[in-house]
Structure formats: structure tokens, C-alpha cells
Design a protein around this nucleic acid. Structure first.
Lengths: 384, 384
DNA sequence: CTGTTAGCGCGTTCAG
DNA sequence: CTGAACGCGCTAACAG
């Protein structure tokens, strides 16, 4: 019922092999022949059979992008940038014929609606985002599924879970992937213990960002700073918090919880507005002397702002509030949110290129991406 | 080098067919045999070859979810809900299989035995989101790529482009998909002209939402209402605007632009904060008598709020502002944003179930999903 | 319940 | 530059 390569070959009066060569554009074919083939393709509405092609070639054009929460713009921005970088590719260019073929295809687009020529797009990668919902099982499941599909590359984004077992399982899964020829890229996630699994790791300087943010507050004169941290056991959470505490210690402050989990100024919760709201109310209750609240990220900070206000306090006159990530909405908060900017777009795009092999990996396979303090109106000196 | 089904069969001293049956769990296998097979699978770190399997079975476990902008939570929320619904397949049982002696009978009785443990997961669907960036070409490209992969289902989310040629091309692509056995579901997008292509269309009541929002403002006493609309040629844009104007007309107001593009109170732009900001400044300049601004969506509304403030005006005392969608951050705007709630989560989940065939399509294949007015603090009676 | 036999649709040699 | 074989790894009938 469905039309196959052989049908096209018959229609064009050539062998299946020739059709294959035209479609993949990786081997010389006479212009006239190619023309005939392309016409047959259009006339028959032929679409390559991906599975068959992948089976024969032992590779696929699938690229997986794993994110912890697809509804969070933090991941959306990175994934979108990566996807754009990946989908934009042309057919392989090794022999120089790919270009000619692409041009031919465009020309032969014919009477069909715009974009019809795209139908036989060759060398196109299918970049695809997978939502793990922060669940370890789903992360592993997706990794397996992608291995099953013989994915060309896999990009893991965002903080990793710091569970030893899970970490080992992920590393093992990635090693299998890598062994099967899949390129592994980490984006916004710390490098793997094992050096030779990932092509590259682009890590955000969460620690430095956390430190600079705390230094900013200290410089303003704050001495009692609440911290609404992210989920426990996440690298992102830990690094931001460590930077924060580093700065406190350097300033000679109690350096709360230099190990002890008993820090009364730190509360953990998910990356949600609600968590920010509730934790902040709790902090305000516990510590009437609080003059500033730092949130795990901007979304949490929004909740913190709401809590401060509901407590009848003003931002920043009574309490300063700061976030992390600098998502687009942060500048629109009232007052505009002080936060730490992460170049999500650039990082995602770079990860996409690394996954495609379009860009050389950084030295040692590891790059740290800067985190820049954005001091805005939500932070100010504490009231006397 | 990579281990195949045959390797597993040899190790377990059974035929390849038996291994296949164990892995797919769709055919009775003796408990003891299965146990041997599963052990071999684990020992060899075997992972099914997806392409080969798809080729032989003429189906794949890929489900595509197309979104216009993955960085926009509007899409992220829908896609996440759909993906969860799709990936949630029967929980894998890590240890259950090892001692399945007794379970064997029960399992053989059941329809399809549950998928095997994580690594040998069978029957798992790979739900995958594709970012079209609102580009028609990319939309078609993804559709082709998904057809190539013989996707099990495709979900198209969000407003459609109202270009006749593109519409025809998309419909043609979807018809090809449907003909190849792919289930097509529309979510937050109006039905196709052609009735038998999509399994189901879940359309938001954008027109009704727009109408109710305008009625709300009219009831408060507003008579000069600016409208920062979305991109031209998008169904979403048009429907929301039509509802808005319906209400104006019903109230005996000039019913601006009942067709003419010359409405001085309406400006079009992308779904960005910036667009909201600039359009609102422009509207304020043009119409000093303006007492309210309605935005295409919440993100645009945030920009509108900023513009109003930068103009030295207060919200809502001087100018009321309203959005659309009720994204999570809207309630945190200051003042809390009046908007129209769309049940994105529910709609996405339902689309996911329809794509899986887990839920019966609505009568006629079309369902309209309500849009509820959320009157909050950003709208109030105009100043006298 | 299990093994045997054929392909699925395509890429890739190798000749010509 | 083109065609003829072969096999990728797996599932799907059929036997038994």
C-alpha cells in the first residue's frame, strides 16, 4: 500500500540503488537521471522509510534532548536553541554533491504548495525533546529508548540528581550510548566522573553566581539573609548554595550550615512559585530580623515576593529579594528582580552544535559558562 | 560488535523468536524460559534495535508533539501534560520478572504482559516534542520527518497559520500521515477543513474568552479599550480579536475594524513582552483617552504593564490591563493580572490520551474547551 | 508453548 | 555513472 523506494525506481526507470543515491546525495548521479528520480518521488508522494533506512545504515537522524521540566522556560529556552541549531542542517557535504542535490531538490519543488520540496529533505536531523519531569526512572527510560532508536546524539540539560546509585545508572546508560556511537553532550550540568563518555560538558558557574549574588547583598549591608533553596540532592541546588555560603563565610558571618543541615535560614523545596511563597513566609516567621531572601531561581523568587507582600512588607525597603537564571519575566516583576543571568540561549545553541559535531569540543571536554549578576530594583540596603 | 537478538537467543538457548516474544510480552512464554531470556538480556546489556523492530513490525513507538514555541510555557504546559500521559505506560517491574513462576499463569491470562524492566522496556512510547518556532517550513519538515519515522501519533498544538497554501500543505501532510496509520490529534487548534484526517480536535474557546474579557471591561465602564493583538494570520489571534469586537459591537460601540485593518485601537505583534511594551506605548500616545489595554496573551500583557508604568500611569487606577491564558506567573504580576484561563494541562493530557487511543474521541471528533475569565486586580473601573 | 522460515525497505558493496 | 546482490536485526506467520 505504501510506496517504497522500488516503486520510485520503477517509475523513474532506474534501479533502487540509484534512487537511494539521489535521495542521500552522497554519490554522483547524472543530472538527467536525478531529475527523473526526483520527479517520480514527487509524483508518487514518496517518503523515505526511516526505520528501514536506519537499519541498513546503522544510524539514525534522531537527536534527543532531555529536560527536567518542559514547562519551565529555563529548559524551554535551552532546548529551543539546541533544536534550532540542529534542525537547520543541510545534507552532508563531504563529497560536495550534497549541495548540488539540495539545490536540485529546491528547484524541482514543483507545483506543490510551498515547502513541498522539503518532503524529501535528506540529512535532516530530528531534534526531539524528552521531558523527564525530574524523575530518575524516566530519565533512564528515555535514555534507553533513545539508545533503542540508535539516536545520533543525546543532550542532557539542567542539574543532575546527586544520588550515587542513580548517577552510576545514568553513567552506565551514557556509556552504552557512547559505545553505540551516540554523541553525548551535557548542557547546564556538571561533567561526569567518567571523562570519556560525554563529548562535552557545558557547566554553568552556579557556585560563582551564588557567590556574587550573596556578595552583592552583603555589600548592601545585609547580614540576615534567608535562602529558599531548590530540591535536595540536585547539583544545581548544592552549587548555588555553596557559593552563597562561601560569600557569607568570607564576610565573617556564621556561615550557616557549613555542613549541618540545621541552618534555620535555609529551606529546601521544588522549583515552584508555591515553594517560594511558603518557604518565605516560614522564614519571615522564624526570623523577624530577616532583611533579604535569596531564591533558588526566578520562579521561586516570584513566590517569595508574593509572600513578602502578603506579610505587609515592602520590596526592597523592608526586605530585598533575589532570584537566579534571569528568565524573561524577571525584568517585569515589580520591582524588577535582581538575579543572576545564565546565557541559556547561547549554551543551548552551543550544545546543539556539539551534538551535531559542528563545533569543536572545549579543551578537556569541559567548559564553564559564566553567570552574571543582574542587580536590579528588588534589592537595596536594609532599613536602619 | 553490538549485541543482537540472536546473541541473546544463543545465550539463553532458545530461538530468536522466543526472545522477541519475551521482550514484547505479547505472546505466552513459559516462565522458566522467560527467566532465562531475561537473564541473558541483562548479562549482555542487550537493548532492542528500534529501527529493525519498527521495520519488521511496520510501526514505531514514536509520538510527535509539535509546538510553536517551546520556550513559552503555554506550549510547555500542554506538551508536558501530553508527554506524561503518553510515557506513563504500565510501570516497569524491575524485579518481578525474576520470580515470575506463579505470575506466569496470571500473566498469560492478561491481555498483554507488562513491558519488561527498564532496559528491556517494551511497549514504551517515545513522546517527543518538536519546536516549529512558528515557522511554516519547519512545521512541514517535522511532519515529514515524523512520517519518515512512521510515528504512531502526532499532536499539533496551538494556533494555526491562516495561509491558504500552507494550510493546504499541512492538511496534505496530515492526510499522508493518517493514511500511513499515524493518529493525528489537534490540541488548542481549530479543526481541519477536512473532517476525516484528525482523530480529534480540541479547540480552545478563544472567541468566547475574548468576548467575556471585553464584556468584563465594558461592565466596569471602559469605553476606549486598546488591543495588542498577536501575529496576523494566526487563528488564535483572529478568534480572540473577533470575540473582543463582538462584545464591543453588542455594547453599541464603534466596533472598530469590523473588517477594516484601520482600527487605531488595535496593533499586531508577536507574542513577546517587547511587542506588548511597544504597542502599548504607541496606543497610549495615539489615544490619550485610553482607559484599558487588552493583550494577546499574558506575556504581552506584562510588556503592556511595563509600558503603562513607564508612562507614569498606575494600574488599574489610570489604565486597566488584561491578558490571556492565565500562565502561572500571571497571578504574581503586580497587580495580579486579569486574564482568561485556558485549561492547558487538562487539554494536553487529553490530547495525549487521544493520541494513545486511551480515550474515545469526542462526538464528531471536535471538542471546544472552555475559557474562563479570571478577574483580578489589574482591571478596575476607569477614573471619572 | 517453541522453533523455522520469510521477508520488512533500504544502504552498500562489487561489477560493469 | 549505474545495476545486481546481499544483509542490517527483528517480527510474523506457520508448523510442530
Amino acid at each position: 500500500m505504501t510506496v517504497t523506494l522500488a516503486d520510485v525506481a520503477a517509475r523513474a526507470r532506474v534501479s533502487p540503488a540509484t534512487v537511494s543515491r539521489v535521495l542521500n546525495g552522497n554519490y554522483p548521479v547524472a543530472a538527467a537521471t536525478r531529475e527523473r528520480v526526483l520527479r517520480a518521488v514527487d509524483e508518487l508522494d514518496y517518503v523515505l522509510n526511516g526505520p528501514a533506512s536506519s537499519l541498513a545504515a546503522a544510524t539514525s537522524d534522531l537527536v534527543g534532548i532531555l529536560v527536567n521540566d518542559i514547562a519551565d522556560p529555563f529548559f524551554g529556552i535551552m532546548a529551543g536553541a539546541a533544536q534550532t541549531e540542529i534542525g537547520i542542517q543541510e545534507a552532508p557535504d563531504a563529497t560536495g554533491f550534497a549541495r548540488a542535490d539540495a539545490a536540485g531538490a529546491a528547484e524541482a519543488a514543483g507545483p506543490h504548495a510551498p515547502g513541498a520540496g522539503r518532503r524529501r529533505a535528506g540529512g535532516q536531523k530530528l531534534a526531539v525533546v524528552c521531558n523527564t519531569v525530574g524523575s530518575p526512572e524516566r530519565e533512564l527510560t528515555y535514555l534507553t529508548l533513545l539508545q533503542r532508536q540508535r539516536a545520533a546524539a543525546v543532550i542532557l540539560t539542567g542539574g543532575a540528581l546527586e544520588d550515587a546509585d542513580h548517577g552510576a545508572a545514568v553513567t552506565a546508560a551514557l556509556r552504552r550510548l557512547a559505545a553505540a556511537g551516540t554523541r553525548v553532550v551535557l548542557c547546564g550540568r556538571p561533567p561526569l566522573p567518567d571523562d570519556d563518555v560525554a563529548v562535552a560538558a557545558l557547566a554553568f558557574d552556579n557556585r560563582g553566581g551564588g557567590r556574587r549574588l550573596a556578595e552583592h547583598l552583603l555589600a548592601l549591608g545585609h547580614r540576615t539573609i534567608g535562602y529558599v533553596a531548590g530540591p535536595l540532592e540536585r547539583t544545581t541546588t548544592r552549587h548555588r548554595l555553596e557559593g552563597h555560603r562561601e560569600a557569607l563565610r568570607a564576610a565573617g558571618l556564621p556561615a550557616a550550615g557549613s555542613g549541618g543541615a540545621q541552618d534555620p535560614l535555609t529551606l529546601h523545596g521544588p522549583y515552584t512559585r508555591r515553594s517560594g511563597y511558603e518557604a518565605t513566609r516560614e522564614l519571615l516567621r522564624r526570623q523577624p530580623g530577616l532583611t533579604a531572601v535569596v531564591a533558588a531561581n526566578d520562579t521561586v523568587a516570584l513566590g517569595a515576593c508574593a509572600a513578602v507582600r502578603d506579610e505587609g512588607l515592602r520590596i526592597p525597603q523592608d526586605v530585598s529579594v533575589a532570584g537566579f537564571d534571569d528568565l524573561p519575566f524577571s525584568v517585569d516583576a515589580t520591582p524588577a528582580l535582581t538575579t543572576v543571568r545564565l546565557p541559556l540561549q547561547e549554551a543551548g545553541a552551543r550544545a546543539g552544535r556539539l551534538a551535531m559535531g559542528t563545533e569543536a569540543p572545549p579543551p578537556g571536554g569541559i567548559a564553564t559558562i559564566g553567570a552574571e549578576l543582574m542587580a536590579r530594583a528588588s534589592t537595596a540596603p536594609p532599613r536602619a
